[in-house]
Design a binder for these strands. Structure first.
Lengths: 141, 141
DNA sequence: GTAACTGCAAACCTTTTGCAGCTTG
DNA sequence: CAAGCTGCAAAAGGTTTGCAGTTAC
């Protein structure tokens, strides 16, 4: 994969370029839903070429998060943190309470509401956090 | 405080009545915002009369949560779980990022949305968590 | 060359659990 | 009295950290 492109991306964010960081970055880019540090670690160490330590994964995720490349959240019921690329778009997720799978939702149902709420309460609304819990089609069977 | 009333409440939920459970229940009832197990533990052991073990607090919170008396959530940024009384009303909060004050919001902006989302995704929607962050009128000055 | 990164192992912190003794109904 | 709580201490699970050696610029 485009390691040259990555070098540029990293430079832009002031992130030193290493093999491990590229691997984590690429894996996060391919992931379609928020994932845990351990999931990343497991996947990457399976493809032996990218083997790396779990604490390195945590350190990289931490760095990416601080630089604004990645979003971290603690929404999981089991207490594990999840990470996903920060696509700079406001986004919410649908979480299955049976299998813990996470799916992004298109659009935000609260845009107008926030504006009205700000006017009626005189709060300066900054942001909101929303997660929707349910049972996914597979688990319903 | 009404220990006789509590006996009745506990019985209704199939919960055996103990001093510790009463103490936790009363403390949760008085709390105006979600709190952690440790906060409860600290508070109760300060008033020596209610001293109890931290694992007991966890066990009681677990029990109350399973019985539906209490709501648990993992939304905290630091990864700690918080607990609050289940008032059986669906409610959201407006949180001031300056002074951390929490104000309940009237009504839920997501009722219709949830129904449509369930239809379009084929998920069985169970519930959602929403919190809105902003700056309160006082802190805006 | 040197500042920064990684691997390893150990520490940390919240939460859970096994067991013996005590309470409640 | 029997069933089920509680306290204590130890374990478990996710995450962080100190340190020595390696890598990137």
């Amino acid at each position: 994969m485009g390691s040259i492109d990555l070098k540029v991306v990293f430079k832009k964010y002031g992130i030193k370029n290493t093999v491990q960081r590229q691997a984590v970055y690429n894996y996060l880019t391919d992931a379609s839903a928020p994932i845990t540090a351990e999931q990343i670690y497991m996947e990457l160490t399976q493809s032996e070429s990218d083997a790396m330590n779990l604490s390195t994964v945590y350190r990289i995720l931490d760095l990416f998060t601080k630089k604004g490349l990645v979003l971290k959240s603690n929404l999981q019921a089991d207490g594990k943190s999840t990470y996903e690329m920060n696509h700079m778009e406001h986004r919410h997720h649908l979480i299955c309470v049976k299998c813990n799978s996470i799916v992004p939702i298109k659009g935000c149902p609260l845009e107008d509401y926030e504006k009205r709420l700000g006017e009626s309460t005189n709060y300066q609304i900054l942001e909101h956090h929303l997660e929707i819990l349910g049972i996914c089609p597979k688990c319903r069977k």
